[in-house]
Design a protein around this nucleic acid. Structure first.
Lengths: 137, 137
DNA sequence: TGTCAGCTAATAATCATTCCTATTTGAGAA
DNA sequence: TTCTCAAATAGGAATGATTATTAGCTGACA
């Protein structure tokens, strides 16, 4: 990930290019799975100590709107950001509290087929993902 | 739901029976889908105007620990309580912001079967639910 | 009825998130 | 390059849901 690709990506998505957006964008690339606003803030401050938490929130929100990120809320009610753009499911480890991505194209196909054959009354399915709770084996 | 069944249920779950718990329990029975602590509070105040919001939180938390309720966090980060105990999925209406339960035994069977045949590395599935996003048709 | 662990009310504290506003900046125009 | 201005930012205050604290109360059991 070079500066140029980051810049290109931000501008392509219709956002004005700023130093802060670029730093946040880069921090996301090296983040662990599903960072919180706070953890992005910590990471970003290394490169830009004067950035404010409010800017992080706003930037992440803009990235979500621009389709660069997805946002969801974890079990304790904290926002998490997900750099992955394809629809996918999550594994919740009840023992370690971790959240991991789970991608399974076969499963998605199976589910889509299921909902084509079994319509839900008065509801049009747009997006499907699974919450899989369990523990390390 | 009579007073007696409520009382029985509370005692069976190992909690001491109190007036407040009983009122909260009853409020849950007549609540709309997935009440928040706040909405339970509003409802309970009709029967017991002196109850405090802190007690509501603690009581709900106790019910969750006792297995009478489930708790989850919605997309805006607010806790919601779910009186239903069987595993079930949720429909998220992207147009109206509603959340509705979706029960589908056939789907559950399909998923269980799928995960028996397709084990996830180093992970033991305990509970499955689907997040179904879409809109009114 | 007396005892006491557990419960409750009231309120303070916390924490993630949003809002506010004066100041600065990026990008296109001249 | 310099100018202009809409948009973005820093910094901090405000908000709102949730949790913690604590003093007093009460249900269950002997």
């Amino acid at each position: 990930m070079t500066v140029e690709t980051a810049k290109k990506r931000i501008i392509e998505s219709g956002l004005k290019f700023t130093h802060q957006r670029m730093v946040v964008y880069n921090a996301l690339q090296v983040s662990a799975d599903h960072p919180t606003a706070e953890s992005v803030y910590e990471k970003v401050k290394e490169a830009n100590p004067s950035i404010s938490l409010g800017t992080i929130y706003k930037t992440l929100e803009n990235f979500v709107r621009a389709g660069i990120l997805k946002k969801f809320t974890d079990d304790v009610g904290v926002m998490r950001f997900d750099p992955m753009l394809e629809t996918h499911s999550h594994l919740y480890f009840t023992d370690t509290q971790e959240i991991k991505d789970y991608k399974d194209p076969g499963l998605v196909l199976l589910l889509k087929k299921y909902f084509e054959e079994n319509q839900i009354d008065n509801f049009e399915v747009e997006e499907l993902s699974l919450v899989i709770k369990g523990k390390t084996k």
